[in-house]
Design a protein around this nucleic acid. Sequence first.
DNA 1: TTGGATAATTAAATCGTTTTAGCTAAATTT
DNA 2: AAATTTAGCTAAAACGATTTAATTATCCAA
Lengths: 341, 341
Amino acid sequence: MDKNKKKASLKDVASYVGVSTSLVSFVLNGKGRLHRVSEETIAKIKKAAEKLNYQPNSFAKSLREGKSRVIGVVLSDISNPFFSMIARYLEDEAEKYGYSILFASSDENRDRAEKQIAHLVSRGADGIILVPCEKSEKTVEAVLETGKPLILIDRYFPTIRTNYVCLNNREVSRLATEHLLTHGFSHPGVIAYDTTLQHMQDRVNGYKQAMTEAGKAGLISESRVKEANLHNAISGSISRMLAEGVDSLLFATNNIATEALKVIKGKGIRIPEDLGIIGFDGGNAFELFHVPVSYIRQPISLLAQKAVEIIMDEILMGEKMTHQVEVQGSLVITESSIKSC
Amino acid sequence: MDKNKKKASLKDVASYVGVSTSLVSFVLNGKGRLHRVSEETIAKIKKAAEKLNYQPNSFAKSLREGKSRVIGVVLSDISNPFFSMIARYLEDEAEKYGYSILFASSDENRDRAEKQIAHLVSRGADGIILVPCEKSEKTVEAVLETGKPLILIDRYFPTIRTNYVCLNNREVSRLATEHLLTHGFSHPGVIAYDTTLQHMQDRVNGYKQAMTEAGKAGLISESRVKEANLHNAISGSISRMLAEGVDSLLFATNNIATEALKVIKGKGIRIPEDLGIIGFDGGNAFELFHVPVSYIRQPISLLAQKAVEIIMDEILMGEKMTHQVEVQGSLVITESSIKSC
DNA sequence: TTGGATAATTAAATCGTTTTAGCTAAATTT
DNA sequence: AAATTTAGCTAAAACGATTTAATTATCCAA
């Protein structure tokens, strides 16, 4: 094994051909013509680079150029299906620009997120894509102060002027509720996380709006679920709401929906006879449930595409405007949300 | 906004305190005492670094040291739950060493994997953790030639001497089949991917071994499933095997198990009366199925922990030995694999 | 008081690029 | 023939750190 053969550097190529490193750099960066290097030399240099298997040293390049071609992504938890899908699309989109992605999971922990971001920045990330966690306004503002390109994804803070891409949470949630109301359910409820994060508030607000529009503001009986001890909390909520007369439920996240389906299965609640349901983000899991489950579909790939597009604009072209994009979710309707009368 | 205030460099700290950059470097790397810097100066330098919010430039550091503190990970597809779990544990383990992880998805495509690896190496990854795809022996060998630390995870090539961490596929698969044989099922079958990858062969071989040990070698009627058109292929396999008298099935991956459960639900096959089943890797999805599903549990966190441990040994200490680790899977048994007689 | 330790610090090379400014020789203009 | 332009190339600084060898100052022993 020749594990000791060092990688060839610009200098190696240069001395192999018998020219200066400048020429090699010009040629290999496609600026040969611009710097009027002779065709002959261009050819020789290219051949030599090939032959020596020259690979530019990315550290030297980054040091010199002040660019890393890496985007840092901090999301809630990459093992959560929703976020791992986002991760995958971000990866694909970034690749189109020749960028790589450095991932980190915050676990919805503010301090952890702060550390992760600092770490990514110190690693030289050219920009940050962030799924911000609750009460992390200061963290976000700190990144903004840096001037480092930043875009929030999935969530945003109404009080902070940043780039963000998120779902039209309120509207799609309103639509889902309206659908329940017009398909045999007179008393819908909603189960959401008990967080101040705006996207979650929006999902609840969409529900409230639909109820109000239907003249049922009086029926609003929301149950919020704390993330801790999720399964039990959801189980309790469902029992309580059923007792109160709720006849259908909107689940505000994929996780909540999945846990709720387990509870429903466990309690033997009939869908849609006893309870109409609409989940968030379909997925393999739902398909194993004994009744097809209606859900709100998020265009995850679009979410990722927009996020990368916007941050790349800022990184590459110095775009200064703030972009705030809402992508449109849609309703996928099946048996679980239609009461046959 | 003071977006123009450049980050402070070593030189800035040095001139702020009125010393040379050497001293600052010594002190901030904890080698102050070693180079007998006076306590007074140490204190001054630390305070100044704090005050100027000095963050070392990682490119300069990497360039000089020839280390990046980044591990490159190429896996099949980060949006696949199994791999996103691995990704998450890898992230956590690497963090313990102060390392970050650069992810890339190969989509089981050899050329893509090759490109991704090249990309990660050119990005300066100190080592590569790889889920190799079919027929990628040459790619793996090419990495080995480089001398860059490498470890395969989840899969391996018996013909190549590399570090790897994988499940005791054959044994756990044998156990699962044996379990079926001793719990009311006289004619088990297996559904696996039609690939030459050894881990998959091992899973099938474990099944065959159990059958042979039970004196039922004659009953071996395996169905292999091509990845393309998965759902339909599995549907066909299940029908065919049931017709052939198969009374129970071992599914060799989580994906196969999930798709199979959908088929089973669709066809109204009763579990375990008509068919006993054992899946691979439990997960949220299984819990929504109307019968609790037995499965083979992989210690994913251990898999990741070992992988990082081994590659870090090589990166940091120049460990030269090849480590080949098999972690032990276990059977999680519920109703789906026990025929009540 | 000369020489040798010892303590405290610094100068300068180095890592591998990119890029600006400058140099030489040939070609063209006046 | 002198001046200018152009073609083709190179030298050297810069990016921001680490590290080796060198330097200065101080103190102590002989």
